[in-house]
Write a protein that binds this DNA or RNA. Structure first.
Length: 423
RNA sequence: GGAGAGAUGUCAGAGUGGUCGAAUGAGCCAGCUUGGAAAGCUGGUGUACUGGCAACGGUACCGAGGGUUCGAAUCCCUCUUUCUCCGCCA
């Protein structure tokens, strides 16, 4: 959520930045400023009346103590009249604040100056490409066929017990999952992230805090009886740990990581491109989150990007890094890098990580602040990234490392798997 | 799931209708003291909105939301949550 005062003071710039994100309801900006004016004047009217009421109440107390009942009664009847006015003003104020909030949450975050113009994923900027494309024989199989051939993932069994998009990992397949999770967590720990193991179901307030609610309600699984949501990413519980928190400046940066399963309804996406592990309702992911001083957030975004890249390098996967264009970026992000690995048998790039700087967009909504050295509270910047999401990584490992007789396990995983070959 | 008791500032902990944004103690910060430190003494020490160049004001907030009242931390209702006991159970 953007700050009203910022919008007010930088209106032209806000409009220009919003248009980079292909946001077209620019009239919202004026409406917000107008509502904020109304909010201020209504509140100050109410405050004035309340101040009068408070001093009258004090006088009445004074009179009662001195036994001047008649005068007190007279004052009582006077003040009881203005109560209705105060009530009316406060109702107006609440309505104005609600409308202001509803408009404010419709504005996406402002893109950073380096964000390229564009509307579609094709207009994302390829920042770098790294690694070798594997030389596969013409008989190379896509990962879903390899999974069946070596009996490591059973999609049909998942359909039986849950539905499409809920695979069952078997034997060495299951061990590969555990190995990847542990490898990613170990690397995150080496990079200074503190691990958090968090609830997989969250309440409404948390969904609002990170911005999944109300907009993306349809993307989350909802447990109606308890009004809880299954998390679509660890970002939700981990970031909400810091909701309504005032940190000390010396506590920054906060670096957390966490492994969780992630649940996404993915309503409306079916077809060949979501086959196998390409898109699931439940998948595993290690997430990294940082809360940092505003002066450092872009430097830290680069560090996080390098951390993710180091994982891909150790796994020996060919990858590329994209700087997302205005039209392809998420609602809450100011700058996002997507990491894609090459899936050699499918002959396409698969997104395996997304690293973003949200600047103050999340912290404002979360009421996450820090107290600076000069004693002033201000909003820190928040960042997060996948490091990494498992299914497409596994898909690429299976496809890219396939041989006639089986699949080679990347060396960095062997200490975690206990085997180096799947056959 | 049943019964009971709580939820107050950074923490501990008073406060049961008016002088309470809130005693007291601890912590923390600053000053005094000291060669330096400890102890001691003095002062300061919440958040948000808002007026003001500022000094300094106004309003709201004592788990959350409603209600009673001229006036609510204090009374009433609902919810959340913690603890104790019973029951159940990985």
């Amino acid at each position: 959520m953007l700050q009203v005062n910022y919008i007010r003071e930088n209106k032209e710039q806000v409009l220009e930045r919003l248009s980079v994100k292909n946001f077209n309801q620019l009239e919202l900006v004026d409406e917000i400023i107008l509502l904020d004016d109304q909010r201020k004047s209504t509140q100050s009217q109410a405050d004035d009346l309340l101040a009068k009421g408070n001093s009258a109440a004090k006088q009445i107390g004074e009179l009662m103590r001195n036994g001047k009942k008649d005068e007190a009664e007279q004052l009582k009847s006077q003040t009881s009249q203005s109560k209705e006015d105060v009530k009316q003003l406060q109702e107006n104020l609440a309505a104005i604040e609600l409308e202001l909030y509803q408009k404010l949450v419709q504005l996406p975050n402002l893109p950073h100056a380096s964000v390229p113009l564009g509307k579609t994923p094709e207009e994302n900027e390829v920042v770098l490409q790294n690694g070798e494309k594997p030389n596969l024989p013409s008989s190379a199989l896509p990962h879903w066929e390899l999974a069946a051939k070596y009996n490591i993932i059973d999609f049909e069994l998942g359909v039986k017990i849950a539905g499409a998009g809920f695979p069952v990992y078997k034997g060495k397949g299951a061990k590969m999952q555990r190995a990847l999770i542990n490898f990613f967590l170990a690397e995150a720990e080496k990079a200074g992230y503190d691990e958090m193991m968090v609830p997989l179901l969250v309440n409404e307030a948390s969904g609002f805090g990170t911005g999944q609610l109300p907009d993306k309600e349809g993307q989350m699984y909802h447990v109606g009886i308890d009004n809880l949501y299954l998390i679509p990413t660890a970002e939700v519980p981990v970031t909400n740990l810091y909701r309504d928190v005032i940190l000390k400046e010396e506590e920054l940066p906060i670096k957390n990581c966490g492994y969780t399963p992630c649940f996404r309804r993915e309503a409306g996406s079916y077809g060949a491109h979501v086959r196998g592990l390409n898109r699931l309702h439940q998948f595993d992911k290690v997430e990294i989150v940082q809360i940092v001083h505003p002066d450092q957030s872009y430097e830290i975004l680069e560090q996080m990007s390098l951390h993710v890249q180091s994982l891909l390098q150790k796994l020996g996967l060919q990858y590329r890094v994209l700087r997302l264009c205005g039209g392809d970026m998420g609602f809450t992000s100011a700058l996002t890098y997507d990491m894609e690995v090459y899936s050699a048998a499918q002959e396409r790039w698969l997104e395996v990580s997304s690293v973003s700087n949200f600047e103050t967009f999340q912290s404002n909504r979360l009421k996450l602040r820090f107290k600076g050295k000069e004693g002033k509270t201000q909003l820190p910047h928040t960042l997060n990234g996948s490091a990494l999401a498992l299914p497409r990584i596994l898909a690429s490992i299976l496809e890219n490392n396939q041989t006639e007789n089986g699949i080679k396990v990347p060396a960095c995983l062997v200490p975690f798997t206990g085997f180096d070959f799947i056959d």
